[in-house]
């Protein structure tokens, strides 16, 4: 095993897939000479040249549309949208076009596209640079949605996403890029749609996504003497590994979802719907979602910290459910 950062893991995944398949190319803002504002594509220009690395004007609708069209024509674009907030300027290309082209064409077209972007708060970047939009993408049939929490998962899932023949929205988190973790020395791919049990327990099932996985594990540590918490990271929310979560809930009887997205209308509520459908009788307590407060992200550090879930607030939620 090797200890690498999340950003390094993503970088390796891209380089390996570009090496493996000449149809893979990169497109996005500031991705060439500077290697992306978060450094995910660092070194790609030097290694693969201008033919494979396309730095664009600030023109998300056009370059995302180009990526969708290039995928229709058989290439495998990896398109970077610098902040998920900016994806609002190319939602037609993502939601109306990429997600639907295969279906509308009666299966004649294939759209092997990856849209990489990063989301989340915690950096005092305020309301238009801190959002979490996974529920929007997951709501629209035809898009796969990945949101890795660790370097290991980031690398394995990105390789799977690039090889997938469907459009995949790949949601990184700006505060995970510098986190470190172990990855195998040899090549590996993590199939989309397989949850990972990050910590075993038998009294409460805690499903967390993206950066909240780290907070959830910390909270589980804090309450370890009182409650045995099983922490599950679905890793992709489309497809969603309901079997793994349901099996856990059948064991623990209690369910808490922790998401950085807003409390209301998020994917956490959807997980609860599916669990209620599948194993209502196993529930010993009402399942809960713990997300961010329902406000645009405030700028001030004191306000931002209050709005986001944190290990303390998660620990409180755990105690309330088992009380």
């Amino acid at each position: 095993m090797r200890n690498v950062t999340y950003v390094r893991a993503l970088n390796e995944a891209i380089a390996e897939e570009m090496e493996r398949d000449d149809d893979v190319f990169l497109i996005g803002e500031d991705i060439a000479d500077c290697g992306g504002v978060f450094g995910v594509t660092a070194g790609m220009l030097r290694r693969f040249g201008r033919r494979r690395v396309w730095q664009t004007p600030i023109s998300e609708a056009a370059f995302t549309g180009l990526a969708v069209g290039a995928a229709m024509a058989g290439l495998r674009p990896v398109c970077e949208i610098m902040y998920v907030d900016f994806a609002t300027t190319c939602m037609d290309q993502i939601l109306n076009q990429a997600a639907k082209l295969r279906y509308m064409s009666g299966g004649q077209l294939t759209v092997p596209l990856v849209i990489r972007t990063q989301q989340g708060g915690g950096t005092c970047e305020a309301a238009q640079h801190s959002q979490n939009f996974e529920a929007i993408f997951a709501h629209v049939p035809g898009l796969k949605v990945a949101m890795p929490a660790t370097p290991h998962d980031a690398k394995g899932l990105l390789k799977a996403a690039i090889r997938d023949d469907n459009p995949v929205i790949f949601l990184e988190h700006k505060l995970l890029y510098e986190t470190k973790g172990e990855i195998p020395r040899e090549e590996y791919v993590i199939p989309l749609g397989e949850a990972d049990i990050k910590r075993e327990g038998d009294q409460l099932t805690l499903v967390a996504t993206s950066r909240m996985v780290l907070h959830a594990l910390e909270a589980a540590d804090r309450v370890a003497g009182e409650v045995s918490v099983e922490v599950i990271d679905p890793r992709t929310i489309v497809p969603f590994d309901l079997d793994t979560v349901a099996a856990s809930v059948e064991k623990t009887g209690r369910l808490l979802i922790v998401q950085e997205a807003w409390q209301s209308g998020g994917f956490g509520s959807e997980i609860i719907r599916r669990i209620v459908d599948r194993c209502f009788d196993s529930l010993k307590a009402p399942p809960r979602v713990h997300g961010s407060e329902d406000v645009p992200m405030p700028f001030s550090p004191s306000l931002e910290a209050r709005v986001l879930p944190n290990p303390d607030s998660i620990a409180s939620a755990i105690r309330e459910i088992v009380a």
């Binding site: 549309g65 180009l66 969708v68 069209g69 229709m72 024509a73 058989g74 290439l75 082209l101 004649q108």
Partner: peptide, 29 residues
């Protein structure tokens, strides 16, 4: 939404202007 890739028809579009960025794709390819 009529598609026939075998003759190069990559589709109509229900969004006015929706095809204009998509057209960059096959040209790029």
């Amino acid at each position: 939404h009529m598609f026939d890739p075998a003759v190069g028809l990559l589709g109509g579009n229900g969004i006015v202007g929706g095809g204009t960025p998509l057209a960059l794709g096959p040209a790029f390819a």
